[in-house]
C-alpha cells in the first residue's frame, strides 16, 4: 500500500489493539486444532506455544520460544490475533516473532529468562508487547520499557487463582492509594515502587494504568473469570485451564460467556453447569518453582 501519510507502529496503534481485546478471553493453544476450538468458543486471541504452563512446570528444563513453523500453522488456522512468547530479555526471539507477523509478543516469565538484569527494550519494536507484573512498580517499569499491555502474573500452570488475586489486588490497590496521594507524596511513591516519577504522576492523575490490565495465571472456571473481572481486570488469559480440563470446548465457551457477563451470577450459574472436571489444581506450598518470581 502506498498511502502518503501512513504511520505504522505508533503508540496509539500499538496500544489500541489491547483496547480491542478488552472483555475477552485469550487462550493458550499448542496446535492449529486447539486454535480452532478456541476461536469457535469465542476467544478474542490465541497464545501459540509448544507446551502449556502446566506441562512446562511438569517437564522442567529450559523453556524457549516456540517453533516459528508451529506459530505460522496457528496463524493460518484462525482469523483472531495470534500472540507468542519470548523469554524475558531475549530480544532476538522477539525479533523473530515480529518478523513472522505475530500480532502480540508476550515477554513471559513462563519461559526461562534469558537475561538476569534487563527486560527487552520494547520501544524498538513495531509489534506490541504484553508483560506480566506482580505489583504496581513492576507494571510501571514494564510500561516504561514500552509494554502496551500488563497482565497480572498469577502463578501459571497451577489452576489456582490465589496468586492472580494477590497480584491484582496489589496493583489495583496501590493505584487507588496513589490517586488519593498529594503531589509531595508521589516522589516517595516513585522511590518505593522503583518506578519513573512521570508514570506515577500519570497514575495519580488518571486513577488507572496508562495501558490496559488483564489477568493471567490460574484461571480454571467461569467463576474465576468473574472474580478477577470484578476485582478490576479488563480481560483474562487462560493458559492450562482450558486444554488441561476434561472437556475443553464447552469450558472455553463458558469462560467467554462468564467474562462478558461477569456481573450477572444467574448467567454464571447457567454456564457453569455440566462442564466436566476442571484441570487438577496445585497448592502453592507444594510447588518448587515460582514462575512469578522471574522478572523484576
Amino acid at each position: 500500500m502506498d498511502e502518503l501519510n501512513r504511520d505504522t507502529g505508533t503508540r496509539l496503534v500499538k496500544r489500541g489493539l489491547a483496547e480491542m481485546l478488552k472483555g475477552g478471553v485469550i487462550m493458550d493453544v499448542v496446535d492449529a486444532d486447539q486454535a480452532k476450538i478456541a476461536e469457535d468458543a469465542g476467544a478474542t486471541a490465541v497464545m501459540a506455544l509448544e507446551r502449556v504452563p502446566a506441562d512446562i512446570r511438569r517437564d522442567g528444563g529450559v523453556a524457549r520460544m516456540s517453533d516459528p513453523e508451529m506459530i505460522e500453522d496457528i496463524k493460518n488456522a484462525v482469523t483472531v490475533p495470534v500472540m507468542a512468547k519470548a523469554r524475558i530479555g531475549h530480544f532476538a526471539e522477539a525479533q523473530v516473532l515480529q518478523s513472522i507477523g505475530v500480532d502480540y509478543i508476550d515477554e513471559s516469565e513462563v519461559l526461562t529468562p534469558a537475561d538476569e538484569a534487563h527486560h527487552i527494550d520494547k520501544w524498538k519494536f513495531d509489534a506490541p508487547f504484553v508483560c506480566g507484573a506482580t505489583n504496581l512498580g513492576e507494571a510501571l517499569r514494564r510500561i516504561s520499557e514500552g509494554a502496551c499491555l500488563i497482565r497480572s502474573k498469577g502463578e501459571a500452570g497451577t489452576g489456582n487463582i490465589v496468586e492472580a488475586v494477590r497480584h491484582l489486588r496489589s496493583i489495583l490497590g496501590d493505584i487507588g492509594r496513589i490517586s488519593q496521594a498529594d503531589s509531595a507524596e508521589l516522589f516517595d511513591w516513585a522511590k518505593k515502587l522503583q518506578a519513573p516519577l512521570p508514570l506515577v504522576q500519570e497514575v495519580s492523575e488518571t486513577g488507572e494504568l496508562p495501558v490496559p490490565i488483564f489477568c493471567a495465571g490460574g484461571i480454571a472456571t467461569p467463576a474465576d473469570a468473574s472474580l478477577v473481572m470484578q476485582l478490576g481486570a479488563q480481560a483474562v488469559f487462560v493458559g492450562s485451564g482450558i486444554f488441561k480440563s476434561e472437556d475443553p470446548a464447552p469450558r472455553a465457551r463458558a469462560i467467554v460467556e462468564a467474562t462478558t457477563n461477569y456481573l450477572d451470577p444467574s448467567i454464571l450459574a447457567k454456564v457453569s453447569r455440566k462442564l466436566g472436571e476442571p484441570m487438577t489444581g496445585i497448592e502453592m506450598d507444594s510447588i518448587e518453582t515460582r514462575l512469578a518470581e522471574r522478572g523484576w
Binding site: M1, E3, N5, R6, D7, T8, G9, T10, L12, V13, G16, L17, T79, P81, Q98, G101, D103, Y104, D126, A127, P128
Partner: peptide
C-alpha cells in the same frame, strides 16, 4: 474483507 489491511504489524494511522 476481514483484516484486509493486514495483520497488527500493518496497523496504521492516517489523516
Amino acid at each position: 474483507r476481514r483484516n484486509g489491511y493486514g495483520r497488527q504489524i500493518d496497523s496504521f494511522e492516517s489523516d
